[in-house]
């Protein structure tokens, strides 16, 4: 356990030294918050179901952080770790494979929570973002979403031959979801056909789950089932496909 903790801590420091990663997981969500916060403010509006623009957007920004890490960060880093022989070096220590992968997962969960904290605290301080009615449930939901999405990241790292390929496919999966799921912009501006289509995208369920809990509407059962199923399938597949070298 000490090893996993130390590795998580040092990996977090490494993430902070990676300018592109820091930008997309920590800075970009803040930019969106301030951009749209400045334009639309946070006054309740019937167009957004009686919620303010900031209240309506922040759960989406959290989904964006989780999606960015899972699809454009984690698979690329693991692909590079494999290509450069970093995993190979770890593999010949007494540390178990589970501990190595566990440290990676906990690193990215902490990173996602850190990004979330930045955007939530900024939203509260600057725009009077509504405090979620069930904060613990929101936290648990974020962790569920992380684990589910990160398992897809591991799968991508396993099936893609190189880090570059993982990056290309990860982005191709992530960006359409980012705009259609309600993560980067409200689904209220999308035509009905696209909103219906977006139900097929896993990130939509992250947005729905987090929004529901934030606004005190309880757990979105469909979203929970989708995310757990995705976790089970991706984990089974990545156990078969993950390569250490």
């Amino acid at each position: 356990m000490q090893a996993v903790g130390k590795m998580t801590w040092i990996e977090l420091k490494l993430k902070m030294r990676e300018p592109i990663g820091v930008f997309f997981t920590l800075v970009f969500p803040l930019l969106l918050l301030f951009l749209f916060g400045t334009i639309y403010g946070n006054e309740p509006t019937p167009f957004l179901g009686g919620h303010g623009s900031v209240d309506n957007s922040v759960p989406g920004y959290i989904a964006m952080i989780i999606g960015t890490i899972a699809l454009t960060g984690l698979p690329v880093v693991l692909g590079e770790y494999r290509e450069q022989g970093i995993l190979r070096r770890l593999q010949v220590t007494p540390l178990s494979s589970t501990a190595v992968l566990g440290a990676q997962i906990s690193t990215y969960i902490v990173l996602a929570l850190f990004g979330t904290a930045l955007v939530v605290l900024s939203g509260m301080m600057v725009y009077g973002l509504a405090v979620p009615s069930a904060p613990i449930a929101v936290l648990l939901a974020i962790i569920l979403c992380c684990i589910s999405f990160f398992s897809v990241g591991f799968l991508l790292a396993g099936v893609m031959p190189t880090a570059n390929a993982a990056q290309a496919v990860g982005m191709a999966l992530f960006f359409p979801m980012l705009f259609l799921s309600g993560a980067a912009m409200p689904q209220e501006v999308l035509p009905d056909a696209l909103v219906n289509f977006s139900q097929l995208l896993p990130l939509t369920h992250v947005v729905n789950l987090l929004k529901g809990l934030w606004f005190g509407e309880g757990w979105d059962v469909t979203a929970v089932v989708v995310l757990i199923l995705m976790f089970i399938i991706a984990t089974i597949l990545s156990a078969k496909t993950f390569r250490w070298e």
Binding site: E18, I86, R88, R89
Partner: peptide, 13 residues
Amino acid sequence: GIQLQQAAIPNRM
């Protein structure tokens, strides 16, 4: 103790 060919630690470590 093991020193391997084609092994590394992360560049920013």
